[in-house]
Design a protein around this nucleic acid. Sequence first.
DNA 1: GACTCATTCAATAGAATATGTGATTATTGA
DNA 2: TCAATAATCACATATTCTATTGAATGAGTC
Lengths: 222, 222
Amino acid sequence: MPVKDYKKSIFEQFARTGKAFSNAHRIELLEILAQGERTVEQLSNAADLTVANTSQHLQLLRNAGLVTARKVGQYVHYKLSDDLVIDLLVALRKLSERHLAEVERLVNTYLTVKDDLEPIPINELMERAGDGVVTVLDVRPEVEYKAGHIQGALSVPMDQLEDRLGELKPNQEVVAYCRGPYCMLAYDAVAKLREKGFTARRLDEGFPEWRKAGMPVEMKDE
Amino acid sequence: MPVKDYKKSIFEQFARTGKAFSNAHRIELLEILAQGERTVEQLSNAADLTVANTSQHLQLLRNAGLVTARKVGQYVHYKLSDDLVIDLLVALRKLSERHLAEVERLVNTYLTVKDDLEPIPINELMERAGDGVVTVLDVRPEVEYKAGHIQGALSVPMDQLEDRLGELKPNQEVVAYCRGPYCMLAYDAVAKLREKGFTARRLDEGFPEWRKAGMPVEMKDE
DNA sequence: GACTCATTCAATAGAATATGTGATTATTGA
DNA sequence: TCAATAATCACATATTCTATTGAATGAGTC
């Protein structure tokens, strides 16, 4: 095989990986999988796609080596094949934010409160959580909490927050987190908590970034 | 705009960036541009595409915000809009290498000498170049050298190497570099130099990585 | 102003992709 | 064994992407 063909085929291989990121639904699926393992049905619900369609996108992602599947009974569980996929997702987010004015517009329109909430960086939360002086609040749906969460975090899904305020220590600062930079659950939670008189901030990033940073993670039990 | 639409449009924006990386020719163009600024004609030659086709791919890349163009006389010079693009290219390479067995096969087939050549990492070259004890050799085509090269490097394009061996100090170690991890020029150069009795190694990575690492760079003059 | 050259544009045909529908497979539990 | 369910497959269709061709633009030159 001449060098020219070698070059051609290696770029084709890269493009195969790139193609996985060329469709909005697939990116959404990957972002959901960045939270943790999910079944096809869960994914199709979360991304609002038909099951067949979801399945096909997953096949493509699997062929590109980005996700792996394991069958448990009649369910097939998919997950990201490793953290390099998260690296690429993060690089894609950063690049898009930097270069597409439209992204910035969308983010500003929807996350206007962003600067008011004084986000706390991962490192700082890690230190302070160790001292036991903050309540770490996971406001994602319970199923996502069960699949993996920050060590010591309390699960209070957003839609139950108002009813369960009594479970929080009144004088302790609360740090809420959710899925990642474009997830609005934690914003809503902090707004609600402050409204009710709590001292609350949100984690700078989401659960995938926390795990990626090598910080302690738990599964299932609180 | 409801949250659902917001989510939809933000993933669509990410996909727009992703699409740029979904075609082998476009990735090749980006890799070439990672070397430095190029005109449309240079790009079309290097990537072996028609000018019109090259131009169209460049439009797409420009719309995605990945490259910028400036017109000088009748020539249009394109370059990467910033280093985040290189970050994404690198992430894409790494991910593809990890997950596509085919990439590994290609790399092994063509770069079998890889381990024999004891590549020198960027940091180490930086230290040793400061002491003036190594000759740094740029074996890319001269036009690429002129567009930017490692400070103090000597330009000896691969096809002239054999005729210009006299310009090298015989007792000094030579470090050759070229475009990046999949560029074979530096491998060929090291093999040739060793054959002729020189002590030669190749730089671990290429010029884009060197510049990216914040190491000193020169343009035009040697 | 006519000419040349680099680049872009516009139109087209053909290839690849995305999605919905309905059938098929695999597994579980009755 | 049969029914129910999760997931995949197979096909048809609409859409999008890509490469090609030839014309248009626009800057420099004679």
